[in-house]
């Protein structure tokens, strides 16, 4: 899978055998020992990077010129967080990979983002649904990180939580307007929530060994989500389908295309600097 050097980061955490890369179809010889923390940070970084890439696709296509600017701002915030997190992940790994090596020279099977962020943008309602749920997850996540024992993560969390709080506010504003706007916008917004909803399960899957166990974010997440959806006159979908796998490198078909676009130029010029 990756060309990881067999080496743990500055804070070696023993890796339980077989906890990583439990991917069907992979030969059992493939898993390399990587630290739990590296995988965790990479997951956050990839969430932010892929979200930024999707939001950037909106540039010049927004429903209002003002909204073009707003979406670009949010994309820039996500990109900024991704860069800090990728840099830190590279240091934890200790294999000399910087932010660009991690962003541009991994294949989709090595990405650790949740499936939610890689889903196509769809219409403005789908984009707002994705952003709303992502921010509702990132706000308590970054807040918890801001108070965690890892200084680097705490600093990144402290910066990113303010940005995410704004993303949450902005997305909520639109979810309410689209949900309680016209008949058409209500229909589209409800359809968007229905489409995206199953992917939320993956965000909050318990992981007690992680620096922040996603399960501990559920109370905050649920309260924001139910409040905003109810203000928006939207109903919570019922579904038992819970797609997942992003954190283990098993993605939807969409990610490979997204990465093809993101990486095409960089990969066409090996060793070049930009």
């Amino acid at each position: 899978m990756t060309a990881h050097v067999e080496q743990t980061g500055p804070e070696p955490v023993p890796t339980a055998p077989g906890t990583t890369s439990a991917v069907p179809g992979m030969t059992p010889a493939a898993p390399k020992p990587v630290t739990k923390r590296f995988e965790f940070v990479l997951g956050l970084a990839d969430d932010a990077l892929v979200a930024a890439q999707r939001l950037a696709e909106w540039c010049t296509r927004g429903p209002e010129m003002e909204e073009d600017i707003a979406l670009a701002n949010i994309a820039l915030d996500q990109l900024g967080a991704a860069r800090l997190l990728l840099t830190y992940a590279g240091e934890l790994e200790g294999a000399g990979r910087d932010e660009d090596a991690l962003a541009y020279r991994r294949d989709d099977r090595e990405f650790r983002n949740c499936l939610l962020v890689e889903l196509p943008n769809g219409d403005f309602a789908v984009t707002m649904a994705k952003l709303f749920f992502l921010a509702a997850y990132q706000v308590p996540l970054y807040t918890a990180l801001a108070g965690c024992g890892d200084e680097r993560l705490a600093a990144i969390g402290a910066k990113a939580r303010k940005e995410s709080a704004y993303h949450l506010e902005h997305a909520s504003l639109w979810v309410r307007r689209l949900g309680d706007g016209t008949d058409e916008s209500h229909r589209r917004m409800q359809a968007a929530v229905d489409e995206v909803w199953p992917y939320l399960h993956e965000l909050l899957t318990p992981d007690p060994a992680a620096p922040v166990d996603p399960a501990t974010l559920r109370a905050d997440f649920d309260s924001v989500v139910s409040r905003v959806l109810s203000e928006a006159t939207l109903t919570v979908p019922e579904t038992s389908w819970t797609p997942a796998g992003g954190r283990n490198g098993l993605h939807t078909e969409h990610l490979s295309y997204l990465l093809a676009e993101l990486q095409v130029l960089h990969r066409a010029h090996p060793g070049a600097s930009w």
């Binding site: 990077l49 540039c59 010129m65 860069r83 676009e261």
Partner: peptide, 26 residues
């Protein structure tokens, strides 16, 4: 070219620049 920018730094710069242009239009 935003989605294909060859480094994350260049991607951020280009996005900020195109965003500025929207601002200037407004």
């Amino acid at each position: 070219w935003i989605t294909r920018a060859p480094s994350l730094k260049r991607k951020a710069i280009l996005l900020a620049k195109v965003q500025d242009e929207a601002g200037h239009g407004l």
